[in-house]
């Protein structure tokens, strides 16, 4: 127990690093994933193919492998970057494929009649998408997106295995430094993760119910 109380500042630092990792890579993944989602429904076949290939490859790749690439392989073929940046790159690239799928299924969930009506009144592809489809797709997209971000918050823990001192990194360090207190140390870290994931899960459930009722 002592190890936990004494090292509360370290926990706090790890918690902040986890949050920064999740927020920054979440933001990048949101933008990149939405662009990929647009690629996947666009009328330009090469863009569609690119979007599909990206999602199929990245979704079937373990996150650890993406980290392995950026931490070990990348320095051999490109400029070396700090581990924190590698972690953000890995998390963003990985999460973007899931954002893309959420966005795409949101767009597909909007009734066919909506797009047909938009075309019937003469709107172009861009107009149809931005005025008619996306505003309606957004509400269906939000709950799965929250789930993607919850998963991202948990996935930041992989960065701890690749030299970033976030929560799991702190857990490793403290566990090795205080062997008798291992269980208390790890439970402390677990609670820190739950502080992020459980409220976010409740929020996702709430939003989902609201969306369902509005339909």
């Amino acid at each position: 127990m002592e190890a936990v109380v004494e090292n509360l500042p370290l926990y706090w630092k790890g918690f902040r690093t986890t949050l920064v990792l999740a927020l920054v890579s979440g933001l990048i993944a949101l933008v990149w994933g939405t662009i990929l989602g647009a690629f996947r429904v666009s009328p330009v076949p090469p863009l569609r193919a690119f979007g599909t290939a990206y999602v199929e490859i990245v979704r079937n790749t373990p996150l650890t492998l993406v980290f392995f690439f950026f931490v070990f392989v990348w320095p051999q073929i490109g400029p070396s970057v700090p581990f924190f940046i590698s972690a953000i790159a890995a998390l963003s690239i990985y999460t973007a494929s899931f954002v893309c799928e959420a966005v795409r299924s949101g767009i597909n969930s909007v009734g066919v009649g909506q797009a047909e009506a938009a075309r019937a009144v003469g709107l172009t592809f861009t107009q149809t998408l931005s005025i008619i489809i996306v505003p309606q797709a957004l509400r269906t997209v939000v709950p799965p997106l929250i789930n993607v971000f919850i998963a991202l918050a948990k996935n930041t823990s992989v960065a701890g295995g690749f030299f970033v001192a976030e929560l799991f990194g702190v857990a490793r360090r403290l566990a090795n430094a205080h062997p008798p207190d291992v269980i208390a140390v790890l439970i402390g870290v677990g609670i820190a993760y739950l502080v992020i994931t459980i409220p976010a899960g409740v929020l996702a459930g709430y939003v989902e119910r609201k969306v369902v009722f509005a339909r």
Partner: peptide, 12 residues
Amino acid sequence: FRGLPVILLMFF
């Protein structure tokens, strides 16, 4: 357990 990272559980 749904809200915890798998790596933390393995470590535990």
